[in-house]
Design a protein around this nucleic acid. Structure first.
Lengths: 337, 337
DNA sequence: TTGTAAGCGTTATCAG
DNA sequence: CTGATAACGCTTACAA
């Protein structure tokens, strides 16, 4: 099928290309009669505007890029969904890319997306820094998601990892736990760092010194193997995220412990699945969808020229108490208004 | 920062734009000396080619669209990952869109993607048909994923739902199950239909008539509530997919049954999580990643002009035996060569 | 209200 | 090997 352009429509309708353009975009008044004629020809010939040409002319693409470490991880795909839900309303499409937790790949992706003239970029960084970031930060609008990059003056949207973890630990202390192990994710990651801060600060405030900290990855397997390395089993095993908690629980049970009877285990994230885990997981809920949605909103502001340049958003986290921890229901979660 | 174009480079390097283009694309020989000069200026001025302009000129975008019902569903995100892994090697990017299981939305998305001049489309359809499909099938290359559309002569990649289900039911029969309930997903869906066919045929071959079939959705909640509607609990509850099986197991346990002691439950998909469910799930593994990867490969063939027009691929499924079904280990899976 | 023509940034063609 | 020039399809001054 030969492709039909605005010129073909113009010729067929006996008008000029500009008139056709005006009809399509309602960018200027056109005589009713002509308008109808044009519309009819468009329909008849099955014309659809070439948005590539339009983009070249107008200077924007109505497309933004979203780079995440792994699209397969529900944590990220839920965030993406949030962004998508916002952008869909603005008729903006999303180019989604996985960096596979690799900063090198991330750099390549960023360059490609900039070259493809994305109107903006949403970035869940793979590392804590990035060579190309500096050079592109003034070529394209960027919003950091779930990460704070020291030294870059760009807006970000994160959730309150620090206070989420604090709430969780306080709860554990309050329900009688006195010794702790923290099975954390990748050392150096923003999330791991913040959660550790919360963990340590909460215990310090509680005057508890009986704890150990290990780093691993944010995966089931890592949670599983880290548990096996634990010398003595503490009252509570606090995990870097839900996946690790699943692994930790399974390892503990394999070792003959019952959760939560002999040991409490907690997660972080509250993946949709965690309420169905056995035992269902006590964890800290991150507002995935909102994280994506808010980042998208900010990026959109920036794109539209509303200069929310240094918007920094920290979204609330919520303590979710379920059955993987021992202890009364006397503690009220703070976020359930 | 003012954007720098190929002309700026040309001027600065004292050559013509064509020469710069030739250097960038290695599309024709250029004197070493000039080439170096150009490369240097490019570096110095921080030039990156405008791929929108290039696309307009060349007639393709190195971008393909992928529409799925819900990016949040691990089943789909794993497929997307497969496609992404293939396309990354070809430097093709993916515009990922969720139709939210809504055919209307899907139609809009398709039109938009065609307008944006995607080189091709990967489509996990939301329904069994679609108004715009006919009109765009000769405007853009399309590969259907996980669905066979009757009446459209386009290539597809699916997994062998029918035989997968047959293998599963045979196994159940072989291990002594004599009465069945099939808790299926959305009626009319390709997957639901094929799995039902497999289920019915296998039982027919086994001479078993004691079974019931229900339709619902492919969700945890649906599995849960469908179980509650079951009159008598059969030997085996066969579920439309893994999520439904999770729900079914939980409902059954809530009703006081033990799985698999009192009743066996099976899934379909083998989500990464199913081996960690309690009990771990007996299910049929679909080759998610391969489904995405193969679809991408075919689409790429079509785009590159290699006319694999009517390529139809049915990928093998594999029976995965775990702990949610009662029965010996005497049965050998067929796919473990 | 409508048409003409320039231009968005590339690349392909054609001379030289 | 290199440079003009046209063209990709659209939008937008500017002119009428």
């Amino acid at each position: 099928m030969k492709k039909v352009t605005i010129k073909d429509i113009a010729r067929e309708a006996g008008v000029s290309p500009s008139t056709v353009s005006r009809v399509i975009n309602k960018s200027a008044p056109v005589r009713k009669e002509l308008e109808e004629k044009v519309l009819e020809v468009i329909r008849k010939m099955g014309y659809t505007p070439n948005l590539v040409a339009r983009s070249l002319r107008k200077g924007y693409t109505d497309t933004v890029g979203f780079i995440v470490p792994d699209i397969t991880n529900p944590f990220f795909s839920l965030i993406i969904k949030g962004a998508e839900d916002f952008f869909k309303k603005k008729k903006i499409s999303l180019v989604v890319c996985s960096s596979n937790h690799d900063v090198k790949e991330e750099e390549k992706l960023i360059e490609m997306l900039v070259s493809k003239k994305m109107d903006g970029l949403l970035l869940v960084g793979a590392g804590s820094s990035n060579r190309v970031l500096n050079s592109i930060l003034n070529k394209v609008k960027v919003v950091f998601v779930d990460r704070v990059y020291e030294g870059y003056d760009a807006p970000y949207v994160v959730s309150d990892n620090y206070n989420g973890m604090k709430k969780l630990v306080w709860y554990l202390v309050k329900t009688g736990h006195r010794s702790f192990a923290f099975l954390n994710g990748e050392e150096g990651t923003y999330s791991a760092t913040e959660r550790l801060r919360g963990f340590v600060d909460a215990l310090k405030e509680a005057g508890i010194k009986d704890y150990v900290v290990f780093f691993g990855q944010f995966t089931y397997e890592s949670g599983f193997s880290l548990v096996k390395k634990l010398g003595k089993i503490p009252d509570a095993v606090v995990c870097g995220n839900d996946l690790m908690a699943y692994g930790a629980i399974d390892a503990l049970e394999e070792m003959g412990y019952e959760v939560p009877k002999n040991v409490s285990v907690t997660g972080f994230d509250d993946l949709p699945f965690s309420k169905h885990y056995k035992p269902s997981l006590t964890t800290v809920r991150q507002p995935f969808h909102a994280m994506g949605y808010e980042s998208a909103k900010i990026l959109h502001w920036m794109i539209s020229g509303k200069n929310k340049k240094n918007k920094k958003i920290v979204l609330e986290t919520e303590l979710i108490i379920r059955e993987s921890t021992k202890g009364g229901s006397e503690y009220e979660t703070s976020g359930n208004s």
